[in-house]
Design a protein around this nucleic acid. Structure first.
Lengths: 213, 213, 213, 213
DNA sequence: TATGAATGAGCGTTCATTCAT
DNA sequence: GATGAATGAACGCTCATTCAT
């Protein structure tokens, strides 16, 4: 599990590659997957369509690269949180939630292609590349597992808990990205509320009984 | 010599219309929106592409019809629940959640085109037709509003609460439909857990301990 | 050579037939031949496309009917002039010119399909049906022939003269119908001038020198 | 890594472009505008339909290119005549007429798309591109204007005279191209006669009788 | 008399992709 | 490393036409 060694690449070549990926994400957000085309990408970056094939064997592979990149960016954001030994489970989960949502907000292009796009479109994506992403759920599960042991997490199948937590975050992120919420509502308030509820629903509430003593 | 009188249509005609809508939803689920084409729909039902145009003026209109139908089916499921005076708020919300999820499970085609599709694709869909769908959120909000007054719902902006609840359900439904969860997990367990948490996070927990003292 | 006995037709049937022809001409003028379609015609008159086929075997035949009708209308306008024994040659030609132009102005649909449309489109039109139209040129030729004999027409091949006269009138009519002239110019002035020149170029000018002697 | 530099194009590329334009004109003459299709053009030149789009963004643009080319060819023929200071007005007008007709005879494709086509079809053609063509009428007008001042042209509104002259030439050209004249008539004779009449109808006849007395 | 249902052919256009340079 | 030329397949859609009713 080593991060991408992007600094060992040859620079000149990489510039265009980067442009393609960046532009693809922009187009993805702006116009949706159905109208993402090699031509449009090429036009957007001022290169010929053929040039894209110097860096990606096919449209499929380009999309796969986007996913791989997205996963890696997400990992880079979440791993330090998981690794932060100073955090208690509740804080850790809260931070994970916030980072996940922030990732979606900042990278709607990645998010869409990673999690929203119809899986059939992506079925050819080698499942293994999602291993990293799935490992996140595993780490979350084990956080809950330990939390249950130490009594701070409400007992329940930790894998279920982790997946439901994920689904809750995915719910807000995807609806925000798709612009489905009433525009009158404040994004930040929605997010804060969603995270609060999610966390609260996992952890035992600080017992007022202590106060009453 | 009378001109066309199109409103006296009968069943035979509508059969094909139904086939088209049903098949569209199947294709939508199987292959995703980006590869949904008039030709494929036609091929799937064993008709010529031209025939579709006898029932839908354009692909846009077909999609709009799907959305409208989907909304109406969803309404038919949820309205009785909202109107059931015998339900207390908590039961009502729980039932609403379950019905919503069930709708998604039973009608993934409708669900995808209603809630998952990139909005840019559907921007031409007359906003008004979503009014029904949005009214659902409003009804949910007022359930929470009254619940707060009567002390059973944890105080919070009811509209935010309603929207976050929706997002939580959307999260499970969309990830299940997309087949993103670990296949080892039991769907029903996931759903039950998600609904439980959602409901719990809205309503004050019955604290028998206090009462019993 | 008998005119169409349109009053012996059965009425009910004829109404629709008339509507089709009238509407076709309107569409022809408004949108041009390339976008004249059976469907549009049907839609315009509030009938089904199929109904048109009760009266015309094909689009070709409809067009042919339009031509035949157009020719017959033109004949009805010009024949009385040719037959008017009270007119001297010069007056006759002048009147013929004016009637021809008037026909074009009043029936741009007929005119376009009779004289402007690309002949390939019409190649299947039985040449014989143009016999009437061509007979007009013949009659004009013989007017010139006699005029030359009696010394009022400038000597020249009468058939050439007749055809060139026709082409001159066709020039104004077609450019007016196509809206090609500078809009600042007055139609009537253009027409008058064109006819004057045409007539003048055929007939010997009344020589003032004779009078002055 | 340089972006596209399209202005450094060379010949090889332009060959196909020329073929397309030439073939389009041929098809236009042979089958008329209503049946001119990208596919037919492509088939005629032995290329795929897609290839046409490498040179013309749309069918509209192709047609516009044809018009623009046609106008420019016509200009190239007429301008030298207008600019020829050695010509007296009568000779100039006669030469203009002959060149105009010759242009039509040699370029029926251009002529049809420039002057015969139903204007509705071309309404999207930027009016400005016709400026050149319209300037021709203006130059003709001023020839007549000066001619009237110097007494060689029969007094009349010069703009009307110019337009009517144009319509006379258009009459012959369009009927010849459409093959409407009796095939027994000699084209050249018709043209000569038409031009003679046109010129004669504008200029005062040299009255030798007066001089000879 | 009039229609609805249906279709094959064709339209203009865009797509991902290949290949020689 | 980058491009222009080229294409077959597919797209949404309209066309004239047929046929059973």
């Amino acid at each position: 599990m080593h991060p991408i060694n992007s600094e060992i690449r040859k620079a000149p070549d990489d510039d265009l590659r980067r442009s393609i990926l960046v532009t693809s994400r922009e187009l993805l957000v702006r116009e949706g997957y159905s109208s993402l085309s090699m031509r449009k990408i090429a036009r957007s970056i001022g290169y010929s369509a053929t040039s894209i094939y110097l860096h990606f064997k096919s449209k499929d592979q380009l999309v796969h690269a986007l996913i791989t990149e997205g996963v890696s960016v997400l990992m880079k954001r979440l791993r330090p949180v998981f690794d932060d030994v100073k955090l208690n489970p509740k804080e850790l989960v809260r931070r994970i939630c916030h980072e996940y949502v922030k990732f979606g907000m900042n990278n709607p292009g990645y998010y869409e292609i990673m999690y929203v796009l119809h899986p059939e479109t992506l079925s050819r994506y080698p499942e293994d590349n999602y291993r990293d992403a799935r490992s996140l759920i595993d780490r979350l599960s084990s956080v809950f597992e330990k939390g249950i042991e130490s009594g701070v997490v409400i007992p329940s199948d930790p894998r279920v808990t982790a997946n439901v937590l994920w689904s809750q975050m995915h719910g807000v992120v995807s609806l925000i990205i798709a612009g489905r919420f009433d525009r009158a509502l404040d994004r930040e308030v929605l997010i804060q509320d969603a995270v609060d509820r999610a966390v609260r629903s996992c952890f035992v509430s600080p017992e007022p009984s202590l106060d009453s003593i």
